[in-house]
Design a protein around this nucleic acid. Structure first.
Lengths: 341, 341
DNA sequence: CTGAAAGCGCTTACAG
DNA sequence: CTGAAAGCGCTTACAG
């Protein structure tokens, strides 16, 4: 029994020796199990404190087959994903929703690495996964669910996949945006929709179309764009070319609206006087433009938090969990649709 | 030997049986060690494929005492941190810099949880840590380093801490910003500096001051602000109250510049005609404003990537690693300082 | 080049 | 209420 190196972490064995009890008893105290005498408990607690003992997670999960960690999976090029504030918000929510002592493992894989990611996740490295599925036809969620890994998807998946998911009520929010433009008295209302292969793109377009239909308006002034400022700028130009009399635009994202604002400025259109602009997300961009953007607020953070709660409830064995959750959206009116008096 | 449940992951033992070799041999193949016959190797590889075997990380790290994971630690309220694009950029860089098969564990702790975070990290859960130290006097990096955990800090730590770190060359960038305003012929140049307790706040102020001094200008038009739009707006108002003739401003961050632009607009000052504005970061905000912001570009992503490389090099046992790294910054000129002709 | 055996640090029936 | 013992799935000397 030589003096051990100061860097070597103490083990449960040593705690037991210092406390004068068996390993079993120490284990019971650590895991807060019943059936331990007060005296033993105190001795163990003290020994843990003096030794600064921290349980070895590897040894623990080897036997319990649980890792106390969940993965946040983003199956897209990390580069793109971090660009917009969406992912940051989700991450913040997931982080906030994590139970104490549970760790978050972040995985970013390109779609062509799905196989590797799936293998890893199903290999017992994590207890469950929150998957941010930006492109609707992502096969990863389905694959994971089929393999029996508890999964919750952020963003409505497309196709016939049956996986629990959490999403913003995009249709309702876009409907509100459309109604707002109608109520402002705008005559020629267009939309710059998101990508057609993404649920957000589809759902926000559907909501806008419903708003046009119920007001008896033409629902065909539609141009699709990706979620970039350049895309929004080009789309706005295309819309103006198609119909120079456009006086209201709903952009499927704030970043798209930012691009649209630039095109409108370039073409000498005043906002909101000549053209009223509504964005979506209420991201940091919405209050950075001049005028500030009227936009549909979604709580991206809440999306992440809800997904994490849902997953952890499932891991805790709760039943009767809702298969999916739609979070409310809300129109926030600012200068881009309100003419100053 | 009953048929096992399909959900149970295959073990190395089963691979050995299927391949007709010992566990040792399978282990050697998995870890790519020398001294395995071609024939045995092929048999094992095939068995792994058919069984879809994935090594159990817990069992592995229990014996190797390595986890193949590193932590990204942000010792601040998750809420604040995700607000600005800085953290997202660092995260992207860290993610991009991760070696294959190494996992990223994300930890967000408030400063008062440092103890718990430190215990966890030093308890063998991760092989090393990248710590984003936003507030200079954070004690966590020092504590971790003293405990012997390999650590690299993103952002220059304050105080007498000796820990490897990676940072942008804030002084040089701010000096460029100051020189640019001088060269434009601006007479009354102010700065909205960052917080005084953060290295970025200090270093960017020092750079600006150097620029003022070398041009024989007054280096005292300084107001501090936090990294928010509201803070920037208030600071700009205070500066204008102190000296209405200000015609050039260097803001220590784009988000601060955004607030400053709003105040300038409210007070009827044209940008850049009346007041030229320079930001810092070249974040997504810089191209969202009208006019777009002249700003000091730093590659936040590169910051994360460099830190991760540095850490992994250390874990790989490389010696002669530089104690710290300063990444270059560069002035990007846009409309907020350039009068259109 | 290959395999038998010990052991990493825990948890979990089981017996008392 | 408590402890002795088995075992989780790997890696690593060691012997051949």
């Amino acid at each position: 029994m030589t003096e051990s190196d100061e860097r070597v972490a103490p083990t449960l064995e040593e705690v037991a020796r210092v406390a004068g009890v068996s390993r079993s008893t120490v284990s019971r105290v650590i895991n807060d199990m019943p059936g331990v005498s007060k005296r033993a408990k105190e001795a163990v607690t003290e020994a843990i404190a003096t030794l600064k003992y921290v349980p070895n997670q590897a040894a623990r999960s080897l036997v319990t087959r649980r890792t106390n960690s969940i993965a946040l999976v983003v199956s897209e090029q990390g580069d793109r994903v971090f660009g917009d504030p969406f992912f940051a918000g989700v991450l913040r929510g997931v982080s906030a929703g994590m139970a104490q002592h549970r760790q978050l493992v972040l995985m970013m894989g390109r779609t062509d690495q799905d196989e590797a990611v799936a293998n890893y996740l199903c290999g017992g490295h994590v207890d469950g996964a929150v998957v941010v599925s930006l492109h609707g036809h992502d096969t990863l969620p389905k694959r994971l669910a089929q393999a029996g890994l508890p999964v919750v998807v952020v963003g409505r998946p497309l196709g016939d996949i049956v996986v629990p998911y959490v999403d913003s009520d995009n249709m309702s929010g876009s409907l509100q945006a459309a109604r707002h433009l109608v109520e402002l008295g705008r005559k020629r209302i267009a939309t710059i929709a998101g990508p057609e292969d993404m649920a957000v793109g589809i759902d926000r377009l559907v909501g806008w179309r419903r708003g046009m239909s119920e007001a008896g308006r033409n629902p065909d002034l539609v141009v699709h764009s990706d979620f970039t400022g350049a895309g929004g700028a080009a789309a706005m130009a295309e819309l103006l070319d198609r119909d120079p009399t456009i006086d209201g635009v709903f952009a499927a994202a704030d970043i798209i609206a930012v691009g649209a604002l630039q095109t409108l400025a370039d073409r000498g259109r005043r906002v909101p006087d000549d053209v009223a602009v509504v964005g979506h997300d209420d991201s940091i961009l919405a209050t950075s433009t001049t005028p500030a953007l009227t936009t549909v607020r979604q709580s991206v953070e809440e999306l992440g938090r809800s997904a994490t709660w849902r997953l952890q409830a499932q891991l805790a064995g709760e039943s009767h969990l809702p298969p999916s959750v739609l979070l409310p959206t809300e129109l926030v009116v600012r200068g881009s649709t309100l003419i100053r008096t």
